[in-house]
C-alpha cells in the first residue's frame, strides 16, 4: 500500500502565545511540535506498511521550520517527504491547504491518505475531508482501527458517547486518524542517520498557486478570550464551606 500522511507543525501545547501586530495571527517566535493526531496518523501508516508492504510518504506545508516534522517522520521510517515551503501556506484556509496538497501530489498514485483528525492550532477538523472531496475519493473520520479486506479496507470509526462503527470502503480513500489508535514509536539512532539520505521534495508556492483561490473565510481578529465569569470564592472551615456551597446549589444554581 502506498500511503500519504499529511502532517502539521503546531505551537507546543504549553507554549505561551503572543499575538502579532495586526492581531490576526500569533508571532512566529514560539516552540513548535508535531500536531499530536498527525503523529498517530504517521505511526498507523508505518504499521500498515510493515504489514502489507508499500511506501509511506509524508507531506507538510509551512516555512522552513516545518521541515523538522518531515525529518522526524523520515527518522521514524517514512520513505520520502514533500515540503510545500512558504510562510504563506500557514495562512491558508482548509480548502486552499487541501487544494495545495492535491496539486502537489497530482502525479502520484496513493492508495490511502491519512491526516490527524484535527490540528491543535486552527482546530477546523476539515482538511482531510476536503481533500477527499477534491480528489473524488471516499473518506471516513476519527478512525481507531484499519484492516485490509477483499474490497478495500474495513475501518473502525469512533462515534460520540462511547459508540463505534465499522465501515467497509473501497480504495483509494482518505482517513482522519484519532489520537490513541496505536502506540507511538521513537526514532532510532540508525533511523535518524538514514533520514538524512532520504528524498525530500520541495514544492514552492508558485508551483501550486494556480490551484488556489483567495481564502473563503477570513480571520478578522485573534484575541485572548475575555473572562466573562464572576467567580464567588467560598471560604471558611470545611464544614462551613460545605454548607455555603449547598446553599448556593439550592438557591442560586437550583439543582437541589
Amino acid at each position: 500500500m502506498k500511503i500519504l500522511v499529511c502532517m502539521k507543525q503546531v505551537p507546543q501545547k504549553d507554549a505561551p502565545l503572543k499575538l502579532n501586530e495586526s492581531g490576526t495571527w500569533i508571532r512566529e517566535d514560539v516552540s513548535y511540535e508535531v500536531n499530536e493526531p498527525d503523529a498517530y496518523a504517521l505511526e498507523e501508516a508505518l504499521r500498515q506498511k510493515e504489514k502489507h508492504g508499500g511506501e509511506v510518504v509524508v507531506i507538510t506545508s509551512g516555512p522552513a521550520r516545518a521541515q523538522q516534522v518531515l525529518r522526524e517522520a523520515l527518522a521514524k521510517g517514512a520513505d520520502r517527504a514533500i515540503h510545500l515551503e512558504d510562510a504563506a501556506f500557514v495562512g491558508l484556509d482548509a480548502l486552499n491547504t487541501a487544494r495545495a496538497f492535491a496539486a502537489a501530489i497530482k502525479d502520484e498514485q496513493f492508495d490511502l491518505i491519512f491526516t490527524g483528525l484535527q490540528s491543535d492550532d486552527y482546530g477546523y477538523a476539515q482538511t482531510g475531508v476536503v481533500l477527499a472531496e477534491l480528489l473524488g475519493w471516499p473518506h471516513a473520520t476519527i478512525i481507531m482501527q484499519i484492516e485490509k479486506n477483499e474490497g478495500g479496507i474495513r475501518v473502525k470509526r469512533e462515534l460520540e458517547a462511547g459508540f463505534f462503527q465499522f465501515v467497509d470502503m473501497p480504495l483509494p480513500a482518505v482517513l482522519t486518524i484519532q489520537s490513541g489508535i496505536n502506540k507511538l514509536r521513537y526514532a532510532t539512532l540508525i533511523g535518524i542517520k538514514q533520514a538524512k539520505n532520504k528524498p525530500l521534495r520541495k514544492v514552492s508556492m508558485s508551483e501550486v498557486q494556480s490551484a488556489l483561490s483567495a481564502n473563503l473565510q477570513t480571520i478578522e481578529r485573534l484575541y485572548v478570550p475575555q473572562k466573562t465569569k464572576q467567580t464567588q470564592f467560598l471560604e471558611g472551615p470545611a464544614s462551613e464551606v460545605a454548607k455555603k456551597l449547598v446553599d448556593k446549589l439550592r438557591n442560586e444554581v437550583r439543582v437541589l
Binding site: 501545547k13 473565510q217 481578529r221 485573534l222
Partner: peptide, 17 residues
C-alpha cells in the same frame, strides 16, 4: 467566534465567499 490554539485564543471569522 471560534476557539483557536486549544482555547488559548479566540478568533472572529467572517465569510469571504
Amino acid at each position: 467566534t471560534r476557539q483557536m490554539f486549544q482555547g488559548k485564543l479566540a478568533a472572529d471569522v467572517s465569510f469571504a465567499c
